[in-house]
Amino acid sequence: MNFTNKKYILASNSPRRRELLTNLGLPFEVRVKEVHEDFPADLARAEVAEYLAAHKASFYREDLQPEEVIITADTIVCLDDKILNKPYDHAEATRMLTHLSGRSHEVYTGVCLLSQDKSVVFHDVTTVHFRELTRDEIDFYINEYKPFDKAGSYGAQDWLGLVGIERIEGSYFNVMGLPVHRLYEELLVF
Rank of each mutant, 00 (worst) to 15 (best):
C78P: 00
G110T: 09
N85T: 09
R167L: 05
P179N: 05
H90G: 00
Y154N: 02
V48Y: 08
N85D: 13
V111Y: 02
G102C: 11
H36Q: 15
C112I: 00
E29W: 00
E137H: 12
L162R: 07
R16T: 09
P15T: 08
H123Q: 11
D38M: 00
Y172F: 15
V175T: 03
A53L: 01
K33R: 13
R31E: 15
Y145E: 14
R17E: 07
L20G: 00
V180F: 04
R45S: 13
W159E: 07
K86V: 04
K6E: 08
Y145H: 15
I138M: 00
L113R: 08
D81W: 03
A41G: 08
V120I: 15
E92W: 10
E19A: 11
F130Q: 03
Q157F: 03
R16H: 13
I165C: 08
L114T: 06
A93N: 05
N2D: 15
L10H: 02
F173D: 12
R95Y: 01
N174G: 04
P87G: 06
I168R: 01
T126F: 02
L187V: 14
Y184I: 14
G155E: 10
T134V: 05
F122S: 11
Y141L: 05
T72Q: 05
V180E: 04
L183W: 05
T72H: 01
F173C: 11
F130E: 00
C78N: 05
N2Y: 03
R31P: 00
S153L: 05
Y88R: 08
E144S: 12
M176I: 12
Y141R: 11
H99C: 08
E186H: 15
F39C: 03
R131D: 10
F140C: 08
S115D: 07
F59G: 09
L133E: 07
Y141K: 09
S14N: 09
L113W: 05
V125L: 14
E50T: 11
M176V: 14
L26C: 12
L52N: 07
I83A: 07
I138F: 01
C112F: 01
R17G: 06
M176R: 05
G161M: 07
N143S: 11
Q65Y: 13
E132D: 14
L114I: 12
P66C: 10
H55I: 01
T98K: 05
L10S: 02
D139H: 08
F3E: 01
N174W: 12
G152R: 02
